[in-house]
Computed example of a mutant assay.
Amino acid sequence: MVELRERRAALLANRRLTWVFGADDPAAVRREVQAGGIRLRVHVPRAPVTSAAGRPIVLAFHGGGWCWGSPEQSRWMAGRIAARTGAVVVAPAYRLAPEHPYPAAVEDCWAALNWVVAHADDLGADADRIVVLGDSAGGTLAAVVALRARDEGAPRIRGQVLIYPVVDLVGLRGPGLGGIVEHYLGGDGSRAEEWAVSPLRAASHAGLPPALILTARFDPLRRHAERYAAALRTAGVEVAVHCPTLATHAYLTLPGISPASRAGLARVVTFLNQVLISRQR
């Protein structure tokens, strides 16, 4: 726990390094709202709405191994997505382990999805045009939310953007990874078999929305993204994969030091415009 607190403190301090992590986009307005006990960071484009139905919605889940992180660490990406797609980007501060082990994060992300649907009018948004997005642990949560929405028949998800996701926690090993999994699962490693922990282990991936999966050549978790892309394709899901050759894990949230971040963001924006705009009712 001491190491975890130190890492959280370091991450909080590093968020001030905008030359590394980027800053809010001036073309989007940022505000915070409360959804029950969940804090939501909302990015709204300054540009006028172009659809009578309202703006599309991107629900964005931050990374951090389910143990640290917050929506602030992805503000560079979130603000630019809002500005370049015209979408309302909503980023929840879901509960973190080990204080709040699984399924707390999953339940918070699911609650956030249902909150934006119920409050779409207040957001000036269209509840029928939603994409889930997440990076690293947030990518896992986005995949899980898409699966649950399919299984429950609502809300309708138009697409999923999974950025270097972790899709199978069974036997996950690596520097620091074992401890993260133990924290997230509350010490009960048997739960890694559940699809809401390891979305690769879902009984079926058929009927899921189109996916954009981002990874990187030097990402130690690259095989996760590749395996999930393969599983989706096998199930008949439309999948695009972006894998820059000179990048590693977390590159998309490090625009100050990773040239690949801008190309990755461009791919995300193109995908979002395709599924949110070209497929309107």
Rank of each mutant, 00 (worst) to 15 (best):
P220M: 14
G189K: 03
T50H: 07
A202W: 04
A211G: 01
A23W: 00
R129V: 00
D151I: 02
R31G: 10
A47H: 03
H100K: 01
T253F: 00
Y164D: 05
P56N: 06
R95H: 11
R95N: 10
S136G: 14
E3V: 03
D219Q: 07
R262E: 15
A23I: 00
G159T: 10
E193T: 15
I130R: 01
T18H: 14
P165E: 10
V49G: 02
R55D: 03
P48F: 01
L177M: 15
C109N: 13
L11A: 09
E99M: 05
S51K: 00
L123I: 07
G86S: 07
L141Q: 13
P255D: 05
A229K: 06
G86T: 08
R39Y: 00
L162N: 03
S261K: 06
P244A: 10
P98L: 05
E238D: 15
A87C: 10
V170Q: 14
P71L: 00
V2M: 05
V241K: 06
E72T: 00
L246V: 12
L200C: 06
L4N: 10
L214V: 04
L4E: 11
E194K: 05
D24T: 00
R156T: 15
R84Q: 14
L177Q: 12
H62A: 03
L200S: 05
R191P: 08
V167W: 01
P199K: 03
L172D: 08
S261Y: 00
A87I: 09
I277T: 14
P209G: 09
G69M: 09
A28M: 01
R16Q: 12
V44S: 11
F271V: 11
V197L: 08
R55K: 09
R201M: 10
F61C: 03
T270S: 15
I38R: 13
E238P: 04
R8Q: 14
I130N: 05
A206K: 02
C243W: 01
L177W: 12
A112D: 11
L177C: 05
R281W: 02
R31Q: 07
L133W: 12
F218L: 15
N273K: 14
T215E: 04
T270M: 05
W76K: 07
